[in-house]
Structure formats: structure tokens, C-alpha cells
């Protein structure tokens, strides 16, 4: 069972309290009705599904109930970092991602 740091509670809590909510940084258009078929396809259907670092949304379901973003390695399952919803995609990741998780 993983420990996940909730950026709102500022605490590491067991995985059981959280629920994954899919890929992050896919913004809903402010002109939804006017989106082209191609743009809607990209927005709704296409996901990156990477082997390695993924940016994804999580919800602290059985805690503060807030949605937040996380950077996770899909190969090792390690959470590299978490940050609040609405914050920009981090341009730099911590160097030794394993250490961040362990401490």
C-alpha cells in the first residue's frame, strides 16, 4: 500500500484514502459548444498513457475530499510529487524522486 501526500492536508496518507481521477492538465474549453470534432476528440478520448512519468488527478476521497494533481512513475508506481489543482504542470521534477517518496 502506497503512501500519498495530500497537498491540502500536507500529510502522507495511505492509498486507501485516495481515488484516481484520470490524466491531469486536460482543460475543458470555455467555448465547449463551439469545439471542432477533432478538438473534442483530443479533449475527451485521447490520453497519453505513458510508460514512465504521468501527470494525473487524484482525489483525497476519505480525507479532505479535494482533487489534486500528482506526478507518478507508471513503471515503479512511485509518486514523484503532488500539487494542488489549478497549479501549473511542474517544469522541473525533484532530482532523486525515490528520496522524495521515502522521506
Amino acid at each position: 500500500m502506497l503512501l500519498i501526500r495530500c497537498p491540502y492536508c500536507e500529510e502522507e496518507r495511505p492509498e486507501l484514502e485516495f481515488r484516481n481521477a484520470g490524466e491531469a492538465h486536460i482543460a475543458r474549453s470555455t467555448n465547449m459548444a463551439g469545439e471542432s470534432d477533432d478538438d473534442f476528440e483530443k479533449f475527451f478520448f485521447i490520453r497519453s498513457n505513458p510508460k514512465g512519468v504521468i501527470y494525473e488527478r487524484w482525489r483525497h476521497m476519505h480525507g479532505c475530499a479535494r482533487f489534486f494533481n500528482a506526478v507518478r512513475d507508471t513503471v515503479t508506481d512511485k509518486f514523484i510529487m503532488t500539487y494542488k489543482a489549478g497549479e501549473p504542470k511542474p517544469s522541473k521534477l525533484p532530482k532523486n524522486s525515490n528520496e522524495v517518496v521515502a522521506k
Binding site: A21, R28, R59, M61, A65, R66, F67, A85, G86
Partner: peptide, 13 residues
């Protein structure tokens, strides 16, 4: 409830 919270927190904050 989850669907509503999701939109309220992330799309229509």
C-alpha cells in the same frame, strides 16, 4: 456527488 465535486473543484472553481 463525485461528478459534481469534480467539476466544482477543477473546472468551475
Amino acid at each position: 456527488m463525485n461528478h459534481m465535486e469534480d467539476y466544482l473543484q477543477t473546472e468551475f472553481p
